[in-house]
Amino acid sequence: MLLFCVFWLSLPLSAIAAEFKVLVVPKAESTRYWQAVKQGAMDAGVERGAEVVFRGPLLQEDVKAQQAIIAEEMQDRPDAIVIAPTHTTRLADDLNKARQRGTLVLGIDSSMEGVDLTSFIATDNRAAGREAADYLLRLTHGKGPILLLRHTDDNGSTLAREKGFAETVAARAPGAELIDSEFIGISVGNAYHNVLELLRQHPDVKAVFSSAEKTSIGCVQALRELHLAGKVHVLVFDQTPEIREALREKYIDAFMIQQPYRMGYLGVATACDALAGKRVPKRIVTEVKLVTDAEELRPETE
Rank of each mutant, 00 (worst) to 15 (best):
E73G: 01
A171N: 15
F54I: 00
A41V: 00
W34M: 02
L11I: 04
R279T: 14
K64L: 13
A274L: 02
L106R: 00
R77S: 11
A68Q: 11
V208Y: 15
S181M: 03
R48T: 11
G267E: 01
F255H: 13
G114V: 03
G185L: 09
E29C: 00
V280W: 14
A127H: 15
D79C: 12
D93E: 14
F54A: 00
H233T: 02
V205H: 13
S187P: 10
A207S: 04
G264M: 01
F7A: 08
V25I: 09
Q66L: 02
P12I: 02
L266N: 01
L178P: 03
A71M: 04
V63M: 03
S10N: 13
D124V: 08
N155Y: 10
L275H: 09
G185V: 10
D180T: 12
A28K: 04
R77I: 06
D293F: 09
F183Q: 08
T215A: 06
V208I: 14
W8Y: 10
E61G: 12
P12T: 04
Q239D: 09
A92N: 10
C5W: 13
R283E: 14
A171W: 15
K289Q: 11
E302N: 15
G164V: 08
L2R: 09
R298D: 13
H202G: 02
I243W: 11
A160D: 11
D253C: 07
N96K: 13
F7G: 02
Q60P: 07
L23D: 00
T301D: 15
P281D: 12
A207M: 05
L247N: 08
T31R: 07
L137Q: 12
